[in-house]
């Protein structure tokens, strides 16, 4: 009885996932590693020949933490759009859940928590393979896992909140292509934001992904960053996560307990 109801939601997802995990392996694990191989090794070799790497490190070392945080974001987004609309509109499992002692707020929290666990697993596998390929020179790199999860949780909270009141999935493709995809490509993932046009660089400071990438990169390269910059990135992400959670609880209550 003492178990928080949000953990019951996690348990439900776990029971379902245990049978269906194979279907998600490509999207969550193999696809990011293919990007790492193509960009880190194939394209990276050209970058190293052309300009001797980026910011003093090999391109593979540069792009590994970027792709790690960006893949975490994409995975969180994928789990926060269609599955949420499915729960509230198509299969109505959310209505079934709130008919039990699980409240709408706990349902939201449980789903976000579950997504974080999924990202934790994928990010760990990614980091391990990245390290084997030679993209993670420092043992501090382990800290990139919580950093990637924190960054992904911001997107999970905000997109869960958004999806739960949608009428159809038509806007989802647009959000992916015109919202998340530009973040994926321009948040310092593949090249330093200092290479962006001057007017665009300050915009990237508002991208949660940029903060997550910077944290991951500080960890995997072992670049001994200043305490102030780490605190700043973490503070931005925690603030964004808090706003997302506040919004999400409100929207889940409105959608499910009307």
């Amino acid at each position: 009885m003492a178990t928080p109801t949000a953990l019951r939601v996690v348990e439900k997802e776990w029971v379902a996932w245990r049978r269906l995990w194979k279907a998600s392996v490509f999207q969550a694990t193999i696809s990011p590693l293919l990007f790492l191989a193509a960009m880190g090794l194939g394209l990276g070799d050209l970058v190293n020949k052309g300009s001797g790497g980026v910011n003093g490190v090999d391109y593979l070392v540069f792009v590994t933490p970027g792709l790690m945080a960006a893949s975490a974001m994409m995975q969180a987004a994928g789990e926060s759009l269609w599955p949420v609309l499915g729960g509230v509109k198509w299969m109505r499992t959310y209505h079934a859940a709130v008919a039990t002692p699980i409240g709408a707020g706990a349902l939201f929290a449980g789903h976000v928590l579950w997504i974080c666990l999924r990202v934790l697993l994928s990010a760990s596998v990614f980091l391990l393979v990245g390290a084997i390929l030679g993209g993670v020179p420092s043992w501090w790199g382990v800290l990139a896992i919580p950093a990637a999860v924190l960054g992904a949780s911001v997107f999970a909270a905000a997109l869960n909140a958004y999806s739960v009141t949608q009428e159809s999935d038509l806007p989802f493709a647009v959000i992916l292509r015109m919202g998340l995809f530009p973040l994926f490509l321009f948040s310092g993932t593949f090249f330093p934001t200092s290479r962006l046009p001057d007017w665009l660089e300050p915009v990237s400071w508002f991208s949660p992904l940029w903060h997550a990438v910077e944290l991951c990169r500080a960890a995997t390269t072992g670049a001994s960053p200043s305490a102030g910059s780490v605190a700043g990135h973490v503070a931005f992400l925690v603030t964004a996560l808090s706003i997302g959670c506040w919004w999400g609880v409100r929207r889940f209550r409105r959608a499910l307990t009307a």
């Binding site: 394209l43 052309g50 391109y59 493709a173 015109m178 995809f181 490509l185 321009f186 593949f190 090249f191």
Partner: peptide, 21 residues
């Protein structure tokens, strides 16, 4: 929105990373 995907790749990889290559 399908038009944007290749264009964004061009700006990011082609020009952003391309300058390093």
């Amino acid at each position: 929105s399908g038009l944007f995907e290749p264009l964004l790749y061009l700006l990011s990889i082609g020009i952003g990373v391309g300058g390093l290559v």
